[in-house]
């Protein structure tokens, strides 16, 4: 009975929706949802990557991972693994 309160993940995503790791350098967007297990999702939420937050992809570390993003004016570093769980609607 509780299922329709938490809609299942859509199978296809429109072109404007990417995960955080897929953004180009300098590309901005807004966080749509965190598609991860609850423990990781809570961790991501608590640091400030929440639905509606404005994000900008800045750069990746010299060896390709982790990446640096700007979230609502502060700077955050996270691995691509975790960034893939963050769905972003690009602007």
């Amino acid at each position: 009975m509780f299922v329709f309160l938490f809609p299942a993940a859509k199978s296809e995503t429109p072109a404007r929706i990417k995960n955080l790791a897929e953004l180009e350098i300098g590309e901005t967007g807004r966080v749509l949802e965190i598609r991860a297990g609850d423990t990781l999702a809570l961790h991501i939420l608590e640091i400030g990557l929440v639905t509606g937050a404005k994000v900008r992809y800045l750069r990746s570390a010299p060896l390709g991972d982790p990446i640096q993003v700007e979230v609502d004016g502060f700077l955050l570093s996270l691995r691509k693994n975790e960034a893939e769980a963050v769905l972003v609607e690009t602007e």
């Binding site: 990781l40 961790h43 991501i44 640091i47 982790p66 640096q68 502060f74 700077l75 955050l76 570093s77 996270l78 691995r79 693994n81 975790e82």
Partner: peptide
């Protein structure tokens, strides 16, 4: 499992 790295880069 490898724990996530969620590291704030302060100004």
């Amino acid at each position: 499992p490898t724990p996530p790295l969620l590291l704030e880069l302060p100004p």
